[in-house]
Design a protein around this nucleic acid. Structure first.
Lengths: 236, 236
DNA sequence: TGACTGCCTGTTGTCGACAGACGACAATGT
DNA sequence: ACATTGTCGTCTGTCGACAACAGGCAGTCA
């Protein structure tokens, strides 16, 4: 052990590949709204702008496709995913379930560092005024991801990341009026309170309330609500 | 509309790309256990065996990586994912939650066709005797996927597919003794009964019972069970 | 005028090739 | 004998090129 340069003598000298960075950059561009839903992604153009060849771009696009950020039409191209209300409700009905689990797990073994990290993000969120929407959404996502990471279940983190990615891409484009943005930002504190054990509500209720600020009815397609009507009409 | 060859005058003349078929084939090979966990995937070799160039192989591997079927070590290669007990429990704790939702949604609007489809699969499952493990696991997966599809929520289907894919890959290798296989196969009927409304148990209980046949404790990392002990030991 | 047909252009899908990185192993020095 | 360094082969990461395809446009025929 002696003489071996123990950790952090040197910074780890980025080991990423072009494909990884390409995927990261494109993903960020979609979530931040710089590339709009429905837009076609031209591989050659992306490659030119990123100063790489098409190969890493195409490999990156495969990954983003699997993350539901883009959809592929064979021999036509890749298109930024475009969600309608039904898509959003379907995703949110799952998000409520998984985020509720994340809240419970995080509350169960919240460490002092974890609490500090969340406190820091809450402060950042609540001190935002008249900031660009894209930046607000970025911090929003960062707060949620912090909780996901604190669960200790990396599969939960991964699942929620790819499930909600298109939601955040959609959010940045539909949250332009700042008075609503204020409400959205402030709706994070109940989550913070929950994981600190300062809430008696169920995790599901906390999450539904949180999402209801953004979306009209986050649980319409969830089994949490009563069925509308069992309609087999088309089958008899 | 008139004169246009309405559906199924001709078979739709496969529109897939090589990469799609490549991903499908490799995925199947992993889930069926023909490629074992931890094994390194040689791109050139795969390309040779599939009679394609490396480009579609690499693009396919990116997708499978996003599905948690393989992991990438930059400049070292792709390796078939290898799960330890903790991974399995973490995945199962989420699987219970999502599959329970799937059961409820399917029960809510089960159509006669849907019921027939499931009945057919149950019959196939229960009539299997001394069949190869890989084939049993295939039907197992097919039954679950049928339920996922019947939920009407394509995001739930997609999420469960990529979440559980590595589980089935693991299952086929650890289910060799046939007396256990019989139990596993028979454990599907309660799910079938549930979606037909023939069960009073909660969807979670049904699912936990179903998974407990395979795995020792599917919910150890779930918030469904009481916390073991809130241990911040490493942080103070 | 309207619809059909055949080019034309831009883009994707696929390929083969090359450079650099990694691991294995031999060579060297102590 | 052991550790370190140098060398070699193999494989990945990336690139440029070509072929195949889709949609747009114009020309042709009724």
């Amino acid at each position: 052990m002696l003489g071996m340069p123990s950790k952090s003598t040197f910074a780890p000298l980025t080991n990423d590949t072009l494909r990884d960075r390409t995927a990261e950059v494109i993903s960020e561009a979609i979530i931040s709204g710089r590339i709009r839903p429905g837009e076609r992604l031209n591989e050659s153009q992306l490659a030119r702008e990123l100063r790489v060849s098409r190969a890493p771009v195409r490999e990156a696009l495969q990954r983003l496709q699997e993350q539901s950020l883009i959809v592929n039409v064979p021999r036509r191209g890749m298109f930024v995913v475009s969600l309608d209300d039904e898509d959003i409700q379907k995703i949110n009905s799952l998000r409520v379930i998984l985020e509720a689990e994340a809240l419970r797990l995080t509350r169960r073994h919240l460490t002092p560092q974890g609490e500090r990290r969340l406190a820091q993000l809450i402060t950042a969120i609540e001190s935002m005024h008249a900031t660009p929407t894209s930046q607000a959404v970025r911090v929003d996502l960062e707060f949620h991801r912090a909780i996901w990471l604190l669960t200790g279940n990396e599969y939960l983190e991964k699942t929620l990341t790819s499930l909600t990615a298109p939601l955040f891409a959609h959010l940045v484009l539909n949250l332009l009026r700042s008075e609503k943005m204020r409400l959205v930002l402030d709706s994070h504190r109940p989550l913070y309170d929950f994981v600190r054990g300062r809430s008696d509500a169920s995790a599901e209720d906390v999450m539904v309330a949180h999402l209801r600020v953004r979306y009209h009815d986050p649980v319409r397609f969830s089994s949490l609500v009563a069925p509308v009507q069992p309609t087999h009409a088309d089958t008899v």
